[in-house]
Amino acid sequence: MELTFLTHKKILLVDDEKEILNMVSSFLKEDGFSEIQTAETVTQALTILKEWKPDFAILDVMLPDGDGFSLLKQMRNYTQIPVLFLTARGEDEDRLNGLGLGADDYLVKPFLPKELLLRTEIILRRYYKEENPLVQLADSKIDFERAQVWKQGKKLPLTAKEYDILQALYRNAGRIVTIDQLCEAAWGENPYGYENSLMAHIRRIREKIEENPSKPVSLITVKGLGYKLVLR
């Protein structure tokens, strides 16, 4: 876990299988998370939610006294914490149902521990970014809250498009983000023919965040496919 400030977040796990609860909490603990509580039923989960006030919840869909979807609806009455569904129900309708209710992600069992951790990290980073407004890059720092970049003590403002593109890259930091995903982040759905504009924006972003924009080390091109943001 690169971002240590997130490891203090309180995580609630809800699943009717004790074994799964044990396993997932062991993964999370190994990854550095220390505050974890588990629940096997909807009732238990609601009690913990009210009393312990977790920052993030991983929910199963099928529970002995109800289902995860209705649990999410109930908890939305008093908390807006991010939620990830971890379930054996892999049908499209279930997934759409879950995401439609406002879940942040939907992961179908069986899953790789690494994938769960990565998704958890992404969600937490997205939700609790304000606690770490400065994203450290090799030659600069990005302040997403103020939409600006600090490079060698100089403050460089980001345009709206540059901000959207950098956000999309940062949310998937360390991973390649396709040209299409970036265009979608900046120009909305079905963005065809924005590739050249994207390249222009990337060039300008590099001028702001890179020491040597023609030899980038933070914002790397993967030819024909996309770009990758490398954190320090």
């Binding site: 799964i20 069992k109 069986p110």
Partner: peptide, 21 residues
Amino acid sequence: ISGVSHDIRTPLSMVMGYAGQ
């Protein structure tokens, strides 16, 4: 088929998870 594939997911999660760990 959908039922079987559903039921096999939870045990398989455990195999996959612990093996990965």
